[in-house]
Design a binder for these strands. Structure first.
Length: 886
RNA sequence: AGGCACGUAGCUCAGUGGGAGAGCGCUACCUUGACGCGGUAGAGGCCGACGGUUCGAAACCGUCCGUGCCUACCA
């Protein structure tokens, strides 16, 4: 027993920081790659180094930590690799903002100085989220923490780049890409978020050059008119028969452009005439390729109009739109403006509207890689849970376009490609070459761009394990066992890890992927700082404790549904934590000075003891099953129910008289079983509530042995303790107690008043059971006297309220206080309910089809139920008759 | 437009073919020696609508209504 009285309420703050450092200092999170235990490994989805822990991380990392702690208790060698992501664009943005405070831009200080600033920034703030993860209780192996910009990971990136290049899977080309004019970089298609905007559809008249008439085009982006090089119509469109081959005069500009016919044009939309701006639209670019059109770039990389835009040069693209509309109106070209909602691409980092742009970039040809990644899932080498995500995975993988991986920023892995100033040769190499491999020239210049952050993230499961240098770690822990992630990065990250893992390790990066939901607010809205609806996990931990937050997240992590979290729910689970604390407090107060020995649980007698031990076995088995199947909510639910509503509400209440009583034998037994069950429940709960379980476990010595609860074994169900008979008998006892309490409540018997009860049964086993459990019934139902009698041997009491429990008649004697009116009402109310049920079962049993087709055990069950109800109704009816006579 | 979910108690949600459940909230009562962050009891639901399959449907199928999300080149 540890010294010192327990506080009445659980004080989590000191407990949490104390045990976390204890675990860390003792190396309990460290994985041993030489261990003979079976491995269980995971890599953390690396949070952005600029990040603060938000509720999504809290959920993601709580679930991972539950799995890790569970697997450790199950005897696995657990490796959970932590780390952070250099988050190229996001981090560069942050540091640029910091520079701006000093009135500087990155171009003013230069590339090298800028990179130094980022590293400084990282040294100063990069650890914040790591400490927040520790606060959450994450049992990561911190000795293996990695950063995507580490030397090891960087060399893995270079190696992969070179290898893909040499295999022809990575190339440089001039193609249409999405360009963010704010971040000044190319983006991958997936990094563009389409958002619905209320814009307008402008109808603009393009007069024919060589004859009378005009074409009216409809557009949402009139400013791009300056770069138009054609107008397209559908060849089958009768309205425009004979227009193809004509020329129109571009309004304002006066340039002549051709009218072309292409089936791509939708006759139904707008006017059926489409203006074509190949430099600034994906589809228009395709048309340009088919029809050999001119390409005129009128918008530059900052989103401003170019020299090609003539008098509009220098104007911002949106200012230009206004001006153009003005001028169109003045010149009589603007026919009409109608409201139009459409989806517009936004940069997922800064939410500015992206600009489709023709640009020279590096691309990964993903199709061949995707094919093996699809196969791997189809063959079950990687299982995605819940399985419905497999469909999305296939769908995405099958429709992949080449992945633009170059970014025009300074923070990230520099592209390992050099260009020869003399002959223009492109040299791709993991090491900087000193001369051109073709002409031996020495004026080589490295590509200024860096790689997409997700390029390095895609190597995470093996680059963090030391690839390509180390093999022992990889042998033991690759493929990783499980990846836990939210669905929003399924494509960004999971799919790409699959491709890279298969390509470079020859095997999938993980055996299972558990995809969890997104946390939303109580209204179902996505949480975001701008909406002000965020629940800050750090604040929640401060207010309610980490265990309560973790338990809430686990309890709400039902598969396939978004989590609507609100603060009250976290608060609610704080009450559960407190309940656990107080159960332990009761126990510990009574373990004080207890010398033991603890009873071997297999030898225990006594109904309540046998019952709770049996229930523990069932719950332990269900707990394991829930976690094995990622049913985190079920896991939380099970333990909540068992600990509160069985162990506390019934078992501890039954056992209290033994604890407080004089009988040393009974007291010893009660203490030892209560402690045994508590110890086991603590271990079952430990994965989700690491802190309070460790705290209580430590205080329970010598009922617990060892340095930490983390070294316990997860309880495996012991068949010798399974006791269906005890469970059934307890059901009867509890039902009797509840029935008596019910009558007391309905008849308004004051809680302090003890009453007399008579139980009448015609079954010996029932009579014996009640005799044996007499004390429990008297205590929990607050009885002054309990008479147990064989049917017919004692007259049924008259001034009493009665009911039927398991065929046994139970009478609560209410001399002087019995109100006949309300007792009759009570009986009638109960009868009404029973008769409804009875007629339902009777109807079923009189249905020939049912009797013929339903399985035998279902029919038997129905018969049994019908009989039981019938008897109960009969007894209650007789009771009602008696009442009338009085 | 297409796809995928979801619609169960006041609220948030479990429940994948045989007795409608939980937590919170609500009502009444309770200084019972772990806990009022507690205890005991109670009220509250044609399981979105309609149709079908079945002896039997909250669950399976279809249609509709409502909500949410994702994808798409109708400018």
């Amino acid at each position: 027993m540890s010294e010192g009285a327990l506080a009445k309420g659980y004080e989590f703050a000191e407990v949490e920081s104390h045990w976390y450092s204890f675990w860390e200092e003792n190396g309990f999170f460290r994985a041993d790659q030489t261990s003979s235990k079976p491995p269980f490994s995971m890599v953390i989805p690396p949070p952005n180094v600029t990040g603060q822990l938000h509720i999504g991380h809290a959920l993601n990392d709580t679930l991972q930590d539950i799995l890790c702690r569970y697997k450790r208790l199950k005897g696995f060698e657990v490796l959970w690799v932590p780390g952070t992501d250099h988050a190229g664009i996001a981090t560069q943005n942050v540091v640029e903002r910091q520079l701006a405070l000093d009135g500087l831009t990155r171009h003013q200080i230069g590339r090298e100085a800028f990179q130094e600033r980022v590293w400084e920034w990282r040294a100063k703030y990069g650890g914040i989220i790591i400490n927040q993860l520790k606060r959450l209780g994450a049992s990561c192996d911190w000795s293996r923490e990695r950063f995507t910009m580490d030397e090891g990971l960087s060399s893995a990136v270079r190696q992969v780049f070179v290898s893909l290049y040499n295999s022809g899977l990575l190339y440089r080309g001039k193609r249409m890409i999405n360009w963010c004019p704010r971040c000044m970089t190319a983006l991958a298609n997936i990094e563009v978020e389409n958002e619905e905007l209320n814009g307008a559809l402008y109808h603009i008249r393009y007069p024919l050059a060589n004859r009378k008439g005009s074409l009216i085009v409809a557009t949402t982006r009139p400013e791009t008119l300056l770069g138009d090089t054609a107008v397209a119509v559908n060849p089958k469109d009768n309205r425009y028969k004979g227009f193809a081959g004509e020329k129109v005069v571009l309004p304002i500009v006066g340039r002549l452009i051709p009218v072309i016919a292409d089936p791509y044009v939708d006759r139904e939309f707008g006017t059926g005439a489409l203006k074509v701006t190949p430099a600034h639209d994906f589809n228009d670019f395709d048309l340009h390729s088919r029809h050999n059109l001119e390409v005129i770039q009128v918008i530059d990389e900052r989103g401003a109009m170019t020299e090609q835009a003539g008098s509009y040069a220098g104007l911002d693209r949106f200012a230009c739109r206004k001006q153009i509309l003005n001028d169109l109106e003045k010149g009589g070209w603007l026919v009409k403006t109608e409201p139009h909602t459409h989806r517009v691409g936004h940069c997922y980092r800064c939410m500015n509207i992206v600009e489709p742009s023709l640009s020279l970039q590096w691309f990964v040809a993903v199709k061949p890689l995707a094919q093996t990644a699809i196969e791997a899932v189809k063959q079950g080498k990687t299982k995605i849970v819940p399985a419905k995500w497999e469909k999305d995975y296939f769908n995405w993988m099958e429709n992949l376009e080449d992945w633009c991986v170059s970014r025009q920023i300074w923070w990230g892995h520099r592209i390992p490609a050099w260009y020869c100033g003399q002959c223009g040769e492109v040299i791709v190499s993991t090491q900087a070459p000193d001369k051109c491999s073709k002409c031996s020239g020495t004026s080589l210049e490295q590509d200024p761009d860096v790689l997409d952050t997700w390029f390095s993230s895609s190597l995470w499961p093996f680059s963090t394990l030391g690839w390509p240098e180390e093999t022992a770690k990889l042998d033991k822990f690759y493929p990783t066992s499980t990846l836990v992630t939210a669905f929003d990065i399924l494509f960004f990250w999971v799919a790409r890890m699959m491709m890279m893992g298969l390509r470079f390790m020859g095997d999938v990066p993980f055996r299972e992927v558990y995809v969890h939901a997104l946390v939303r607010d109580a209204e179902g809205q996505k949480m975001s700082k701008s909406k002000g609806n965020v629940i800050d996990p750090l604040l929640m931990m401060e207010k309610y404790g980490t265990d309560a937050l973790r338990f809430a997240l686990s309890a709400f992590a039902a598969q396939g549904r978004d989590i609507k979290l609100s603060e009250e729910r976290i608060e609610g689970y704080k009450h559960f934590v407190n309940k656990i604390w107080n159960a332990a407090r009761l126990l510990l107060m009574n373990l004080e000075g207890f010398e033991g020995p603890a009873e071997a649980p297999e030898k225990v007698s006594g109904l309540a003891h046998r019952w709770i031990l049996s229930r523990l076995q069932v719950v332990a088995a269900q707990t394991s099953e829930s976690l094995d199947n990622y049913h985190f909510n079920q896991y939380a639910q099970l333990l909540y129910q068992f600990l509160w509503h069985e162990y506390c509400d019934w078992y501890l209440e039954i056992v209290k008289p033994d604890l407080y009583g004089e009988d040393p034998e009974a007291s010893r037994l009660a203490r030892s079983v209560a402690a045994f069950v508590m110890r086991n429940v603590l271990v079952l709960l430990h994965p989700v509530m690491p802190f309070i379980t460790e705290e209580i476990w430590q205080r329970m010595k010598p009922f617990t042995a060892g340095a930490s609860i983390m070294q316990e074994s997860f309880p495996t169900p012991n068949d010798a303790l399974l006791d269906p008979q005890a469970e059934e008998q307890m059901q009867t006892v509890m039902a009797a107690i509840v029935a008596i309490r019910n009558i007391r409540g309905e008849m308004n018997v004051p809680p302090a008043l003890k009453v007399e009860v008579v139980c009448i049964s015609d079954q010996d086993s029932q009579l014996e059971l009640l005799e044996r459990e007499r004390r429990t019934v008297c205590d929990l139902a607050r009885l002054s006297r309990l008479t147990v009698s064989r049917a017919g041997e004692t007259p049924k009491p008259k001034q009493a309220a009665g009911t039927v429990v398991a065929n046994m008649e139970v009478f609560v004697i209410l001399k002087d206080i019995l109100d006949f009116e309300s007792e009759s009402n009570r009986l009638r109310k109960e009868l009404a309910k029973l008769e409804k049920e009875f007629s339902m079962t009777s109807r079923k049993l009189s249905n020939d089809d049912f009797l013929r087709k339903a399985p035998a055990e279902v029919i038997e069950k129905e018969r049994e139920k019908n009989g039981r109800l019938g008897e109960k109704i009969e007894k209650l009816n007789r009771r009602l008759e008696v009442m009338k006579e009085l």
